[in-house]
Design a protein around this nucleic acid. Structure first.
Lengths: 334, 334
DNA sequence: AGTATTTGGCGAAACGTTTCGCGCAATATG
DNA sequence: CATATTGCGCGAAACGTTTCGCCAAATACT
């Protein structure tokens, strides 16, 4: 039903090749240009991207696999990624892994089968298996937020270890020495942030007891349960560091439901999301990631690879810096 | 580089037609079936969906336009929609309108150009212009959450007016008569919820003064600013009804930053999102929408239309019911 | 002026599927 | 036993583009 390039051919008397050349920005005589443009307007012609894709082997679509689309964190990243991609004329095929690596594998296969031109993955854990999966599809792959552990692939992320170290230093400066950490224990960022936490305390000669480490999964529930346990400890730590958005959320819930209050009875330091820090009472002291930059840089990197502007094959690892959002959730106990 | 159906043909000696028949579930002799399956395995053959799409005029991809992908509300809907679609073998092409109708138009054109098999729209305002836009593409269109004002199209939503009425009744039952409402004034749901609010008060013979109506835009900022104004009123209302997630968030922020507290000085009733009600202190009393059902039903409806199981052309309007999530943000002033 | 180069245009092949219509053999029907 | 029906397979056309190689005309050089 919709007009095809053949209708344009019949209307203008020109050949398919010439019209195609026009459509792709080639040189065409001014008079022919006008003819084609008129025909296009009259027939409401639009290029059929599917047919084009078949011959060019490009779909102008990029695939995104995200560990959970429910999280504001990822929603915000997707927003910036989408904006940047749409400006470049690309579409965004999104799959939600729902925190499950098996689903993630299936989704990536699905995206490859859809012939996406490139792939951005915010992986459930470290993205090592994924590299293999994408290898023979021969399309660029960029990891976002969570990089593959053993490197060797393009990624955009923050320096998790240093960010955690600096954040922990704030607690230390406020006199805290007995600090608990609630973190995810399996995926890349959680592991790195744990290391940074330990580093900071080691730097001031403090060794943290094993029962202060809560290394579980990246979820509201885990944050909630862990904070409950911390609250009920007889020798409760003076402060808690929560290493991601969901865990922070859960921990805040637990404190709100309890009889203790922050920062009088316990100091809190969270991670991710500017909004949360305002909604909670008191305002949460937080580590904030440069979401906009992460989303944008990640897409730019991928598009460069796709359009072969970046010919060298060395993997690009873009490490962005974080900020500390001040709040009132930390008590000075010096 | 990847194997094609022609490689399978050469390997098995069968014709393209037969192999295609096998791939699409047609009847093939058992011995040939085995031959084909072996060839597929050995060559790692996978159907090229682009080529298939060119001839079938189907992409097994559906487009989603959402007014803001940053909102948890939409993220949650997208999650359930994505799950249901993936199970049916469909992909999800997502565009973010960023609260802008012009962007929304562009995005929908873009999605149509991508030849999606169907369209789900969570519109910026009422989706009236969108119907025109999609009409001659001849693909099914389902509105989610916010329906076109003058009906006549498929949609899945809640009964906004009744939900607001029931919610307001809770405030009334607790003795409140001077209630403010912060709502979006342009888009469908905000308008309906405002009506329900007015209905409930009229039912008990109360006429609300004009300065109690805050009809602005659906944003955190508007919720925040409006609540600030309410707080600083000399004749402050005893309760506030916030009619969506973002506005609720903003209002909570404003109260937290102020010197008054909830529910002692002001009662609050919010809308959307189970998590927020736990994070705030005190727990927010809220209207909760059946997100999972909304996302799933919406996809089911669309897929039925696409696969023509639903042959009758009457528009389906699916109205789901809401729940009230109890909290401690309402003071009984009877 | 004569040759070399550039410019714009064309026909045809290619991309990887599905599907239509036909034919043959095997089975079912009367 | 003759005829109708079914099951399975095949060749070829179609889907709507892009692109390759070639050609003619126009322009640029010496």
């Amino acid at each position: 039903m919709p007009a095809t390039i053949i209708d344009i051919k019949n209307r203008t008397g020109l050949s398919l090749a010439t019209i195609s050349k026009y459509l792709n920005g080639g040189n065409v005589l001014p008079e022919n240009k006008i003819k084609i443009e008129m025909a296009i307007k009259e027939l409401h012609y639009e290029v059929n991207e599917i047919a084009r894709g078949l011959v060019t082997n490009k779909t102008r679509t990029i695939g995104v696999s995200v560990y959970s689309i429910e999280s504001i964190f990822n929603g915000t990243l997707l927003k910036y990624m989408g904006d940047t991609l749409r400006k470049a004329g690309y579409g965004l095929l999104i799959c939600d892994s729902n925190q499950d690596e098996e689903t993630e594998r299936k989704n990536i296969k699905f995206l490859l089968n859809k012939k996406v031109d490139g792939l951005i993955v915010i992986p459930v854990e470290a993205g090592n298996g994924i590299i293999e999966l994408v290898k023979n599809a021969d399309i660029p792959l960029v990891f976002l937020d969570r990089a593959a552990e053993n490197g060797g692939c393009d990624c955009v992320r923050i320096d998790n270890r240093m960010a955690a170290l600096h954040a922990t230093n704030v607690l230390i400066k406020n006199g805290h020495r007995d600090i608990a950490i609630i973190s995810s224990g399996k995926e890349y960022t959680g592991i790195e942030r744990c290391k940074g936490f330990t580093d900071a305390l080691k730097n001031v000669g403090v060794e943290i007891k094993e029962d202060r480490y809560f290394k579980g999964i990246h979820s509201i529930e885990y944050g909630y349960e862990s904070m409950k346990k911390i609250i009920s400890m007889q020798n409760r730590p003076t402060a808690v560091f929560m290493t991601n958005y969901e865990i922070t959320l859960g921990a805040v819930m637990a404190v709100n439901e309890s009889s203790i209050s922050c920062p009088e009875d316990i100091s809190m330091l969270g991670f991710d999301d500017l909004i949360l820090s305002h909604v909670t009472n008191p305002a949460m002291y937080m580590v904030v990631q440069p979401m906009k930059e992460m989303g944008e840089k990640c897409v730019e990197l991928l598009l460069n690879k796709i359009e072969k502007k970046n010919t060298d094959m060395v993997p690009v690892e873009l490490v962005l810096s974080t900020k500390l959002q001040e709040g009132n959730s930390i008590k000075d106990i010096n």
